[in-house]
């Protein structure tokens, strides 16, 4: 007995991998999401050739909107060159043949995990977020049947109690990322696990924001210029992380920094999490206090990513 599986060539897959029927289904869900900002629209998420939890929601959203004239930027943790960003960018290069870029300003679609670029986005750009758990109430109430009712009734008491308990116990709201927001004065939404530092960026952002959660089978959206308010209390207003030093490499202030351990004697430096932002600044000749240090040179040189150009 011989098993001869038919092996389709790569070209057997449709443009951007998904079949047209699946794209139509996701497109319909996206339109509903845009019409009801912050509401999580159920959709029949497909198995993708990368595991659930590794960006399948974002990939399905991007695959449903992308066209051959688009230019795609793919980031993870703010960086174009983290392993999964490399892998997902390669997926779209292979299946859609679209132009890709590291430059925030050149991208028409930006797919991201855990960060929003420092450079303000424009009306003609779309940012697609990969979302692990779309339900902001999930860790307070594990049942979908219950959280759905709460959203339906706009009953967000549980969330306020949780935040208030944080304050009572710690004197702070102890949520540092995936910080809940209220969208258009109606739905409480999880902005995906971006640090709360990025929350102000999604308030009245000129670009369209699309959120995809593949495993949890939800998409949601925030249209341009939509009011997005981080939940807080009058006496405990929302505040973002601040860093007391500038970026060690490019001296940027007011940006999100990553802590890099340099040695095992407590040596460390803080550098931009948005690698494209940092590189642009250094190309302009801006340098930080650590830029000349040999340890920093090891970090910033040698493995410079090749800037990709639009094809």
């Amino acid at each position: 007995m011989t098993y001869a599986p038919q092996t389709p060539s790569e070209s057997a897959y449709n443009f951007a991998y998904l079949d047209e029927q699946t794209k139509r289904m996701i497109r319909r869900a996206l339109l509903k999401g845009i019409a009801i900002p912050g509401y999580q629209v159920p959709f029949a998420s497909r198995e993708m050739p990368m595991p659930y939890g590794w960006g399948t929601g974002g990939v399905q959203v991007t695959a449903s909107i992308i066209g051959k004239d688009d230019c795609l930027k793919m980031i993870d943790q703010g960086s174009d060159d983290t392993t999964n960003a490399v892998s997902l960018r390669g997926f779209f290069k292979k299946t859609a043949g679209v132009a890709t870029t590291f430059e925030t300003a050149d991208a028409s679609i930006i797919q991201t995990r855990h960060r929003i670029p420092e450079k303000p986005l424009r009306e003609d750009q779309v940012i697609v977020f990969q979302v692990p758990i779309p339900e902001p109430l999930r860790f307070l109430e594990p049942r979908e049947t219950e959280t759905r009712k709460m959203h339906g009734l706009e009953d967000y008491g549980l969330m306020h109690v949780k935040l208030y308990e944080d304050i009572a116990k710690n004197g702070h709201i102890a949520t540092t990322y995936a910080y809940p927001v209220k969208v258009n004065g109606r739905y409480v939404m999880d902005p995906s696990p971006t640090p709360k530092f990025d929350n102000p960026k999604i308030d009245r952002m000129p670009a369209l924001q699309l959120y995809g959660a593949g495993r949890e089978q939800r998409v949601y959206a925030v249209p341009p210029y939509t009011d997005v308010k981080s939940l807080d209390f009058e006496d405990y207003p929302f505040e973002v992380q601040s860093f007391d030093k500038p970026c060690g490499l490019c001296s940027a202030e007011g940006v999100y920094l990553d802590e890099v351990i340099l040695d095992d004697h407590g040596g460390r430096m803080f550098v931009c999490s948005d690698t494209n932002h940092c590189e642009e600044r250094r190309a302009q000749g801006l340098t930080g206090p650590m830029a000349a240090a040999p340890t920093a040179a090891q970090l910033s040189d040698g493995n410079e990513p090749k800037p990709e150009t639009r094809t």
Binding site: G78, Y177, L257
Partner: peptide, 22 residues
């Protein structure tokens, strides 16, 4: 397939969120 993806996604870099927690 869902379960293994989500459990194993903890292998992906999470340093941005970890920085916020630090």
């Amino acid at each position: 397939i869902q379960a293994t993806g989500f459990v194993e996604h903890l292998k992906l870099p999470h340093y941005v969120d970890f920085q916020a927690e630090l």
